[in-house]
Amino acid sequence: MPHKRAKHSDRVAKRFSLGKDHAPGANDGFFSEMPKGAMRILQGAKVQEAHRAKLEAKKKAEQQALTKSAKGKAKASDGSAPDANDDATSELTIRPGEKLRDFNARVEQAMASDVHATFRSASRSKINARKRERRALRKAGIDPDADPEDAEQQESDRKAKADKAAALQANEISSADLKRQRQSFQQTGEIKDFAKASQVRKINDVAQAPPRLTRAPRGESVQAKTRKARLMAKITGNDEEEAERNVKQAEKARQKGRVPEKLAAANSLPAASKKRKSADSVQTAVEPSMARQRVLEEEREKAIKAYRQVKEKKIQQTGAKRLKKA
């Protein structure tokens, strides 16, 4: 490799073959016998100068590219044709041996951006003009999408809506009037009866009647139901005792409907038959059959016999152990 020095033995042999007291050559100071550290120090100015020149060339190229792009955008926005002295235009010449079809394709590809920019600018101007017209029509109160024949009808509808809104605003009660009415109610102490609420429900409606509890929650006691019924009767001005009586009757009817038919039939039986049945069941449970008694007796004898055998075996084992110890 050119940047690698030869071995020390080769350099010594070369120096011995060349001899001494020679005139300095052209390569002295680069890859001569001088150490690399000293060579870098001596050549530092040249290296720095070359680096600065490289940076300046790069910066100049970037500036030229920016100026070219800015010129291209300005030409595209103005819609003017490119200059004849431009580099891109100067390159658009037919090459030796090139077919006319290939040259046309190359020209179209090079000019595609300019054509697209020109087309977009023209279409954008038309769209903006159309938008301005529609905005002016809306500002005048005319629908731009409507037919010209319906313009009179739209104008009449608009006037009718405006008149209706003005009438509603005139009939609306002001906050001062509402405050005056509230103060008069507080001073006179007049209590109005609850009006019958309509079936129409709207947002921010005010309740004009108390709620009506038509169904009690599951598991509610009779006392709670009667208490609520008395309260509702008191609010509506009805008889409290009658409301309580109605609740109790409804509860009895509900409980009566839930009793099964078999349970009612069992409750209707006489007490003597029930006692007789219970006595018979106790007697049958106490006195088993003869076969059952015989089987139980055999099992008892077997258990006693097995127990005696185990007991005798244990006694014999303990006796043998005592004899061994003695």
Rank of each mutant, 00 (worst) to 15 (best):
A6S: 06
K248Q: 07
P270C: 02
K126L: 08
E33Y: 05
A110F: 01
E244N: 14
R230N: 01
L18T: 05
A6E: 01
K324S: 04
R158H: 05
L296I: 08
A140N: 07
P144T: 01
E152I: 05
Q255N: 06
D280I: 12
E261G: 04
V107C: 11
D10R: 14
E152N: 14
K4D: 15
K75Q: 05
K164R: 10
V200T: 12
R11T: 03
Q293F: 03
A285L: 04
D28E: 15
F185M: 15
E261Y: 05
R294D: 08
G319T: 12
K58I: 12
A136R: 02
P210F: 00
D10G: 13
R120S: 08
P24C: 02
K228W: 00
E241Y: 11
A233Q: 01
A45G: 06
A13E: 11
G257N: 11
G25H: 03
T93W: 01
R15S: 13
R180H: 06
A13N: 13
Q317A: 09
L55F: 10
D114H: 03
G72C: 15
T236Q: 04
Q183V: 12
T318Y: 07
H3M: 11
K274S: 02
K325P: 00
E298H: 02
R11Q: 08
P217G: 02
A50G: 04
K325A: 11
R130W: 07
L42D: 02
K192F: 14
R201W: 07
S69P: 00
T226P: 01
P288Y: 06
E287S: 02
D102K: 00
A84W: 08
S278V: 07
S32A: 09
I127S: 13
E152L: 14
K262G: 01
E172M: 14
E220A: 06
D145W: 06
E298W: 08
T188Y: 01
S289E: 13
R5W: 11
M290K: 15
Q199F: 09
A224S: 15
K248C: 07
R212Y: 12
A250C: 02
K75P: 04
D163S: 13
R180Q: 08
K126S: 13
A38D: 06
A151M: 12
T67P: 04
I235T: 14
A70Y: 11
S174L: 05
A146F: 04
Q208F: 11
G19K: 10
